[in-house]
Nucleic acid binder design. Sequence first.
RNA 1: GGAGAGAUGGCCGAGCUGGUCGAAGGCGUUCGCCUGCUAAGCGAAUGUAUGUUUACAAAGAACGUACCGAGGGUUCGAAUCCCUCUCUCUCCGCCA
Length: 421
Amino acid sequence: MLDIKLIREQKDFVKKEIEKLYIDAPIDEIYELDEIKRNKLFIVENLRNKRKTLSSEIAKEKDASIIQSKKEDVKTINLRIKEEEDLLRDIEDKFNNLMLEVPNLPDPEVPLGKDDSENIPVSYFNEKKTFDFQLKTHYEIGEAKGCLDFNRGVKISGTRFYILKNSFAKLQRAVINFMLDTHTCEHGYEEVYSPFMVNKECLIGTGQLPKFADNLYMDTDSDMWFVPTAEVPVTNMYRNEVLNACDLPIRHAAYTACFRKEKMSAGKDSRGIKRGHQFDKVELVKIIKPEDAKEELFKLIADAQDILNRLDLPHRLVKICTGDLSFSAAEKYDIEVYAPGINEWLEVSSCSNFNTFQARRANIKFKRENDSKPEFVATLNGSGLALPRVMIAIIENYQTIDGNVRIPEALKSYFGSEEII
RNA sequence: GGAGAGAUGGCCGAGCUGGUCGAAGGCGUUCGCCUGCUAAGCGAAUGUAUGUUUACAAAGAACGUACCGAGGGUUCGAAUCCCUCUCUCUCCGCCA
């Protein structure tokens, strides 16, 4: 959520920034409602003040007839208060709902661009491997080895579900542990295992709701929503809290399954395990002082990249342009790993700086000193990393001429004795 | 799932026979005094959000409003009474 004061005082600036995102946001409407709301609030507050004054006069008054007439006065005032309060509430509801639909403003360093075609690959890491044989895709290898079962996945759950079996299931488990250990033991993150289901407030807090409800699985009867990313439960751990400056930065690494409806055209991206309705992910989340956002973002990106370096996988860092920024992000970098079998760069991590946008929504604050005023924190997050695509990259980059997969050096202590699957 | 108890400020804890209660008292914290240093002692300050005015570079200041788990209701007036919901604790049942 943006600071209403920013809209109030620099409306044109805000509008100009939002134009860069190629998104419509009702800034003018909010600006007007804000003024109407303040006027109405002023009226209501004055009426309440009158009531309060009269009521305390009644308490002190001895004369029964004066008491009676003052009671009548308050009754009359109460009718007006009720009326005005109802109006105020409508205005406030509308105002709040509109505020929740305004995206974050882009950081000045974010390149201008209208969509993902204008994202900028900024650097490449680890050479693409060369192969002297016909490459297979991960799903060809997986099905041939009995490690991937798409048909039964669809049978039990529907399209875009699959089953990992045998060595692939074990490989995924090894990769999860490898990632968590690396982030906790080497990069200084604290591990968190959170619920996979959260209430609506959390999704509003991190910005998935109200705009993106159609990508979420939920049981609205009990207000339980499947998490689309661990960002949601982990950031919201601190919802409605005031943290001490000495507790910051908070750095968490969390493994969860993630659930997304991904309502896109059938067929697109549907081969293989690249885009399912359920996938595993290790997520990195930071709660920090606003002025540390830049520095911490680059450390977070480096921490995520370190996983790919240790696995010796070719990857690149892509700077996301304004038009492709996600709703809550002020700036964002994607990490894409190269998968030679399907010949694609796959997004395995999206590292974002939200500044105080999520903190405003989730009401997460901190105090610099014991007696200083609470301020909003900044939040960051990025995958570290998304499992299916790392799996694809490992399987396709480490494939051998005879259709097997070598185990990367870094995973050997996690995978057990076999060197080849 | 059944029965009961409870939810008050950073924490503990009064108030709950409705009226200066934003809330006693204690602890903690901050500042000052005291002291060879520390402790103790003494004095003072100490919630959040928001509006109006003032100031406007900023901090601030004055006044107001809301907030005693959440949402309704009764009343001239609610932390206090009534209803609904949520959560916590204890006991019983069930269960990985």
